[in-house]
Design a binder for these strands. Structure first.
Length: 513
RNA sequence: GGCAGCGUAGCUCAGUUGGCAGAGCAGGGGAUUCAUAAGCCCCGGGUCACAGGUUCGAGUCCUGUCGCUGCUACCA
């Protein structure tokens, strides 16, 4: 039975190059997408860019170029980086694309028709120098002066269209309360619930003072503000509102919106409310992951601990993209904040090289030296049965971990099996058995069991470390192409394939001087 | 201030519905050699923040105290 699985990252704001935060979300999503493809699901993985808004206009002005030139330039970098990092997205939506514009205008028309959008006025503190509204809390923090120029903020009022968020908030609250795993992790869910309990006001969804955006279809003096413009990408990318809604019909509702915790409120409240208004089913799950710090402090360029594109490329070049992926997902429980340190990064590299890489390597060496190909399983002992049963457990455990977005477990579970394999090798000592011709049959069995364990480890790592896992499997004489994880695990490593001495799979970190 | 969560071995953390305190890393010791000097085995008696309470029995439930973190309406 094949299911369909649709998952998304947020669409990123391309006023600067991607950094480790973007990479983290995207690699995590890519891992989940690859898992589902490898589970045989009909998978659709979407990412993209959110290109409108005042910040983009300002950045363009600073650089002396038009916004379109800016976004084309930076979006190209995003796309190039995703390609470099082997991100397997099926589509890339840009909010400046005609397909998105058409969809957004269709959505706005529907909401206008149903009366959920109305014309009101937006009033707030306005920074005239910056030409932007400042939020009430920010204004207060700045003592009602411009953070840039220091000039007093002005009370400003402009016409704006509003979405009747207040009408849907009770239904959204009810839905979140009744669906335990709609918003995850649970602590974030609690926050959303308590915030909703305080009540919400209607949402300003247009800007008259801005031109860089999608015009309101009924009133082109206004452009659609970020909420509808950005959030709706998840359905416009599927052709919602266009002549061809086949993708939408197939993949909506989305199985998983993977986002950072800073944008949970919009995804957990605004977006479901909009979908309710449109009469569409809600996402199955919204998962908010944590933030990266570096060396215990918030990452920033001025502090010199910013993990930017250059650093990411350097690490990927030296240790492989997959090792970076492993570290990012293994370093902390998914959903928690986590801290990037060189020491931890090196630890995770050592873990891969010492536990997984070395296990594969010692296996390949012994099999090639003693037998030349994988021997068949003979009479079994408890030790053997024990390992085989751990191997059988891997598939279901991984399935459970992926289903619950426990990505740290997804990284650790296969490695645990390699640990067990190392223990098994030491306990059975095939290198001693090899010296005694009488033990030939026992040696066959031990080599077989150990090889199956490292094989299963690599299969389990395929979603997370596609290149390294496949490279390892090829050294074992297996081509995983076109097979599901379960098929690979069920089939096991084929007996009789010639096996040669191995090449180290992982590079270890340079020893500190 | 309000709401929520957390406070368990040096470090990072696991600990389902209450029933003899766990893992990884770091550190100490040992046996071994197939392997990227990698891996394996042994060594943790920690007031489970503190004080009460419920219970035959609480890290696990309740109350209070202290400490930390997050959220507190337009920040992608």
């Amino acid at each position: 039975m094949t299911d369909r699985f649709y998952l998304t990252t947020p669409i990123y704001y391309p006023n600067a190059e991607p950094h480790v935060g973007h990479v983290y979300t995207t690699m995590a999503a890519d891992t989940i997408a690859r898992y589902h493809r490898l589970a045989g699901d009909d998978t659709f993985f979407l990412t993209g860019t959110d290109e409108h808004g005042i910040k983009m206009v300002k950045t363009a002005v600073e650089q002396g170029i038009e916004p379109t030139v800016l976004v084309d330039r930076v979006v190209a970098v995003f796309q190039e980086v995703w390609k470099e990092l082997k991100i397997s997205n099926d589509d890339f939506i840009r909010t400046t694309q005609p397909r998105h514009k058409i969809g957004v205008q269709k959505i706005v028309e529907k909401l206008l028709a149903s009366g959920d959008i109305y014309l009101g006025s937006y009033e707030g503190w306005y920074d005239e120098g910056q030409e932007e509204f400042v939020t009430e809390t920010a204004a207060k923090d700045q003592q009602y002066k411009s953070a840039i120029s220091g000039r007093p903020l002005v009370r400003y009022k402009e016409g704006s269209y509003f979405f009747r968020l207040s009408k849907y908030a009770p239904a959204v609250l009810k839905y979140i309360r009744e669906h335990d795993d709609f918003v995850l992790p649970a602590t974030r869910r609690n926050e959303v619930i308590s915030k909703l309990e305080q009540g919400v006001e209607d949402l300003s969804i247009s800007r008259a003072s801005l031109k860089w955006g999608i015009p309101m279809p009924n009133d082109p003096k206004h452009v659609v503000y970020v909420w509808i413009d950005a959030l709706s990408n998840y359905i416009t990318a599927l052709g919602y509102g266009s002549n061809d809604q086949s993708l939408f019909d197939k993949y909506w509702p989305v199985n998983l919106h993977l986002i950072g915790k800073e944008i949970l409120w919009f995804h957990a409240v605004y977006w479901p409310a909009m979908l309710m208004s449109l009469g569409l089913p809600l996402p199955r799950r919204i998962f908010a992951h944590g933030w990266w710090t570096a060396d215990g402090r918030k990452m920033s360029k001025s502090m010199g601990n910013f993990i930017g594109l250059e650093k990411i490329r350097e690490l990927a070049a030296r240790y492989g993209i997959d090792s970076l992926r492993y570290y990012l997902l293994r370093a902390a429980p998914f959903g928690h904040d986590l801290d990037w340190t060189e020491a931890d990064f090196n630890k995770s590299l050592n873990e891969l090289a010492n536990v997984v890489g070395n296990c594969l390597n010692r296996m390949l060496n012994m099999v090639s030296k003693y037998r030349g190909s994988l021997p068949a399983l003979g009479a079994m002992e408890d030790l053997d049965r024990n390992v085989l049963s751990q191997i059988r457990g891997l598939g279901p455990k991984l399935a459970h971990a992926y289903a619950n977005c426990e990505l740290q477990q997804c990284a650790l579970l296969p490695v645990e099996l390699a640990r067990a394999a190392n223990g098994f090798i030491d306990a059975t000592a095939p290198f001693k058995l090899a010296k005694d011709p009488q033990q030939a049959s026992r040696l066959d069995t031990v080599l077989h069991v150990a090889a199956q364990a490292i094989y299963a480890t690599l299969v389990g790592l395929l979603p997370l470390m596609p290149e390294k896992a496949e490279a390892g499997l090829r050294q074992l004489g297996c081509d995983p192409t076109g097979k599901t994880i379960q098929q690979l695990l069920d089939a096991g490593l084929a007996v009789g394939h010639p096996i040669a001495a191995g090449q180290p799979l992982f590079v270890k970190p340079e020893a500190p001087k």
